[in-house]
Design a protein around this nucleic acid. Structure first.
Length: 712
DNA sequence: GCGAGTTATGTTTTT
DNA sequence: CATAACTCGC
């Protein structure tokens, strides 16, 4: 590596970069140059004679992987030592890596290498079927809840047999049945869901010595970023991949763990030293990103978390402007306020692409969008999955899936009558019944439709045309993907149907064209383009991946999506009780602390300007409700915040009233919720809090000074 | 078989 | 408020 590249590194960064053999834990606070350390480390390994393709780096998103690959190659290209020389390090997400492993060792894993990957909406169909097949009542066993439970089981590597063995109550036993049926349905479709990708790989590596040893010798150096957000399955995969050498390097920050709900286990990073007793530990505590004011606020906030090792952020940048907190009347004014401040910043030379707005839930983007349109500010909502969940896109992809994987019934059912070709519910049921009684897949049954007695002439003919078309497509599946998509789109009749649909169809047509251009980009970039690979890749495409950092537009995204990114100016909106922390995440301290970390992640994205806001009233599900400021606001430290000093955002005179004593059992009336009974009263003077159980059945915790409760 | 219109229902975060 | 599920008439 060139000297100038090395001079950019601090002593601790260098320590992490040049630690070669053995386990390494890099605890890296926000803005500490963690990504740079990893890319330099990849280059340093290659410099020291390690073959590039013996290195495997795992990132949290595909976008991060792409960026890291480019940077690592750039460093390698400028290196004095051995070059990348045609081979490249494997850099991808856990999920992409698993797809590759499962495809390669499909036989050992007991799966079809042409497996389809099922997303949330595909899963929804399967779980509904499973619940139905188990003859369960969907009110007592909501499919979505069952799916959540199954997902948790898979993330913890509990398979059907193990659950059956340990289930001792009615719910677990029922869940085991649904789980079993759900897995059976997926297997019949040769499909894996997101969790399967991880768990099947983990089980394969755990159970097959040969595969484990082969892969561990292939990847002699493993690097894992964002290790604080790995779950049990990912942990097992990591352990297996380094079983032959222990050359594992993980980087992460316990304070930025925000995926507990997805099975992420913070213990993975906290107990790294126990897992690998001879581990070298490097701490990167200096922050090169944010001005000192922002770091003070972040420090104050995160200090409120009880379950953490104390750690402070060491600023390297001087103080600048204070963090600003603003209160608005309602969500519309808040959005307008953000838009005006954005214009202000731009007038003072800020770049739109260096501005971001974060919120807790996607639904909040709507009001912002309206304000940005009104104020003619270019913006992009960072939520690219939406593209792949559009109807027309899903239709096209379903055609492709069935061509690659004939057992994918979910895909088949989607397109069998799209565009309408007169094959309706009744016909499908008849074919299905035939298939079931002859023990063949739906597609096989369709092929044999002429032998199904219950079908009349017309449907038989229509089915024959459909099956013939698919069989024709199947003959030319090799090579580049874009031409295949074009052909399928045109000949399936989808294109015609959209053309006939007028204005709505026009937009859909554009989307499909965009899909085709994306596919030809894939064709150019892939070493060996194949339809199967393309489908399995696009299934893993996520929202940040579509984020165009070069476009000069304000970025709008959720706090979760903001992870790993940085901006000159950051707005965080909706700092209200129930939103941040979210009401569904306040059941226990762990959840509350994770919400705090989420806010912490948001704050530490900002380099220069940080603007926090909340609204006094907010419309939720069509109802305007009085809000309570988020408890997190009190934790930021009033000294470090502008406008707390100037204006009384925390305490509004207009709403002030003499605060009477409320004892538990007191009957009260609230202007929105009506009659209720006091359950709990916490006397904190003007900040007193009451918990009220309302006649509507809801229980709410309110700040007395805003709640306007009257005694009855 | 199909689509329009109606009614119920349920709301976090994502690879 | 937004969407899914459902009904009904053609």
């Amino acid at each position: 590596m060139h000297n100038e590249l090395l001079q950019q590194l601090t002593p601790s960064q260098k320590k992490a970069v040049f630690h070669v053999e053995g386990p390494l834990l890099v605890i890296a606070g926000p803005g500490s140059g963690k990504t740079r350390v990893i890319t330099h480390r990849i280059a340093a390994l290659i410099d020291s004679g390690v073959r590039a393709n013996n290195i495997c780096a795992i990132t949290f998103t595909n976008k991060a992987a792409n960026e890291m690959r480019q940077r690592a190659i750039a460093l390698g290209a400028s290196a004095e030592g051995p070059r990348f020389g045609g081979t490249q390090p494997h850099i991808s997400t856990f999920h992409s890596l698993c797809v590759r492993i499962l495809r390669r060792y499909a036989e050992q894993a007991g799966i079809n290498p042409n497996f389809s990957i099922y997303d949330e909406s595909d899963q929804a169909g399967c779980i509904k079927q499973a619940v139905k097949d188990c003859e369960l009542d969907t009110t007592n066993f909501p499919p979505v809840r069952m799916l959540e439970a199954i997902s948790t089981l898979k993330n913890n590597l509990i398979d059907v047999d193990r659950l059956k063995a340990q289930a001792d109550d009615f719910f677990s036993k029922t869940l085991a049945k649904v789980y079993a049926r759900y897995q059976q349905i997926l297997a019949e479709c040769s499909a894996l869901d997101f969790d399967d990708l991880l768990s099947k790989t983990a089980f394969l590596l755990q159970g097959n010595d040969e595969v484990r040893s082969e892969l561990s010798n292939r990847f002699k150096f493993l690097l894992i970023d964002e290790y604080q957000d790995t779950n049990r399955a990912q942990y097992v995969i990591a352990k297996a991949l380094v079983s032959a050498h222990n050359n594992i390097c993980v980087t992460g920050d316990p304070d930025q763990s925000i995926y507990r709900w997805r099975g992420a286990d913070i213990r993975n990073i906290i107990e790294f030293e126990n897992d690998w007793p001879n581990a070298t530990i490097v701490k990167l505590e200096e922050n090169f990103r944010s001005i000192a004011n922002i770091l003070e606020v972040a420090d104050n906030l995160i200090a409120a978390n009880q379950k953490r090792k104390p750690k402070i952020l060491i600023p390297t940048r001087p103080h600048g402007e204070d963090v600003r907190l603003r209160c608005f009347e309602d969500e519309t004014e808040e959005a307008q306020g953000v838009a005006e401040q954005v214009k202000n910043l731009v007038d003072n030379g800020a770049l739109l692409r260096e501005i971001a707005v974060f919120y807790r839930i996607n639904a909040m983007s709507r009001t912002l969008e309206e304000a940005f349109i009104l104020n003619k500010i270019p913006y992009q909502i960072v939520r690219g999955v939406e593209f792949y969940s559009r109807k027309e896109i899903r239709d096209v992809l379903a055609y492709l899936k069935i061509l690659v994987n004939a057992s994918d019934e979910t895909a088949l059912l989607r397109i069998i009558n799209a565009p309408a070709r007169g094959v309706g519910k009744t016909t499908i049921e008849k074919v299905r019944a035939y298939g079931q009684s002859h023990n063949i897949s739906l597609y096989e049954a369709l092929k044999k439709a002429e032998h199904i007695d219950s079908l009349s002439k017309a449907p038989k003919a229509k089915i024959a045309v459909f099956v013939n078309m698919l069989e024709q497509f199947k003959k030319e599946l090799a090579g580049e993907v874009a031409p295949i998509i074009e052909r399928v789109f045109a000949e399936s009749g989808l294109e015609k149907a959209l053309q006939a649909a007028g204005a709505d169809g026009e937009n859909a047509l554009e989307n499909v064209n965009e899909l085709i251009s994306a596919a030809s980009l894939y064709d150019q970039q892939a070493e060996q383009p194949s339809l199967l690979d393309y489908l399995q890749q696009t299934a893993l495409f996520s929202d940040v991946d579509a984020y165009d950092t070069a476009a000069d537009r304000v970025a709008l995204m959720t706090l979760h999506t903001a992870k790993g990114l940085e901006f000159e100016n950051v707005f965080i909106i909706g700092l209200e009780d129930g939103l941040l922390p979210h009401e569904r995440s306040t059941n226990n301290d762990e959840e509350l602390e994770e919400e705090r970390r989420l806010f912490f992640v948001g704050i530490t994205r900002a380099k220069q300007g940080l603007y926090i806001s909340y609204a006094r009233y907010r419309k939720i599900r069509g109802q305007t409700l009085r809000t309570i400021p988020s408890q997190f606001l009190y934790e930021l430290g009033a000294d470090a915040i502008d406008s707390v000093k100037e204006e009384q955002y925390f305490y509004d005179e207009a709403d002030a009233q003499t605060i009477p004593d409320f004892a538990p059992g007191q009957l009260v009336r609230h202007k929105f919720f009506g009659l209720g009974t006091i359950k709990e009263f916490v006397d904190m003077g003007e900040n007193s809090i009451v918990t009220v159980e309302f006649k509507t059945g809801q229980t709410k915790t309110l700040m007395l000074k805003y709640a306007c409760l009257s005694k009855i």
